[in-house]
Amino acid sequence: MTLEEILFYIFAAGGIISALLVVTRRNPIISAIYLIVNFFCLAGIYLTLHAQFIAVIQILVYAGAIMVLFVFVIMLLNLGNESLLRDGFTWKKVAAGGLGFGVLMELIYIFMMQIGTPSIEMERATNVGTVEAIGRVLFTRFLFPFEVTSLLLTAAIVGAIVLAKKKLD
């Protein structure tokens, strides 16, 4: 077993366990902290795929910016009655779990069908994940989508301010 495989399996186990904890914890702040753990595990997996830029962005933007927003809102809402939100055992949940398990098995079956599995080429993969390579593609082929992204973010900022404002006048 190479170091790469060992790291992948450690990060994969960490990612799955933290994902389960995000979904099952009752307190939203604990869920948010486990989601940050999950983001760090994913960043590690991105590094095993030689995607350095995405790994750094994952931690900076997701674990940094977006999760701060979440934690801030959880603290702002000041939820006192968490016990009222306790969701117990219902048959709906059993049905949802069964359906989810079925879909998961189907997906795994499709992935395991051997259809020309490509093998990772170390030099090419290392060249793809750098800031230079991604920047080159982003500012040539994807220049227009990149510019439209700024419009999306402006709309999101305006929408968030309008929605969260105290009184619409």
Binding site: A65, I66, I134, R141, A155, A156, A160, I161, A164
Partner: peptide, 30 residues
């Protein structure tokens, strides 16, 4: 993206992250 040696997938991840930021801002405002 890594297995095929093509940077397009990683550029798409960049856009998905932007979308996630916008979605989180508007959703939390709601």
């Amino acid at each position: 993206s890594a297995f095929f040696g093509d940077a397009t997938g990683q550029v798409l991840v960049f856009f998905v992250m932007t979308l996630a930021a916008a979605e989180a801002a508007v959703g939390l405002a709601i």
